[in-house]
Amino acid sequence: MSDPVVPGLVSINEEHRETTIVVETARLVEAATHLRDEEGFNFLSDITAVDYLGWAGADVSGYIGTRAGRDLNRPMTQGYQAVPLAKPKRFAMNYHLLSISEEPRRVRLQVWADEGEAVPSVVPVWPTADWHEREAWDMMGIAVAGHPNLERILLDDDWEGHPLRKDYPLGGEPVRFSEAE
């Protein structure tokens, strides 16, 4: 990775032999164009949206832990080895890039968004982003600004809610009671 110059760069992390480049959401298209044209990442493998609602929260799995590890003096701390690192915003959008060239490389481009915050579309950079972004909208409710055809893809057009969000109810059908009619 030729140093610094990814536009809007926030941080670069190396974990599990994978590089994650975090950029400012507003400058995503600029960063994506740079990575495609200057760094040779001509192939967009995948876009994954992740909802971090309740991440590291005690109400998720009923544990109380500390960042440093288990606290043996407090009950119920046996659940996790350590409290996971807090995340900057609720949603992460991960763009898994690949360079189809003589030097095959992968990188994860990451932007963060809060509820209701739009993420710019990368369809002009990689046309294959079309359905991936529609899926992120359908499943996770991430509005993609500038997408040419932002409609639901896997679910019905009249579906309510975005099922992969952490606050989406897991079971049950909405019931219509006779009094309400």
Binding site: H16, S45, V50, L85, N94, H96, L98, R106, R108
Partner: peptide, 19 residues
């Protein structure tokens, strides 16, 4: 352990990735 990973293999249909 806490973290994220993307694994890609050549499935019969092409790049099969798992995040």
């Amino acid at each position: 352990p806490e973290g994220e990973a993307y694994m890609a293999i050549e499935s019969p249909r092409g790049e099969l990735g798992c995040y």
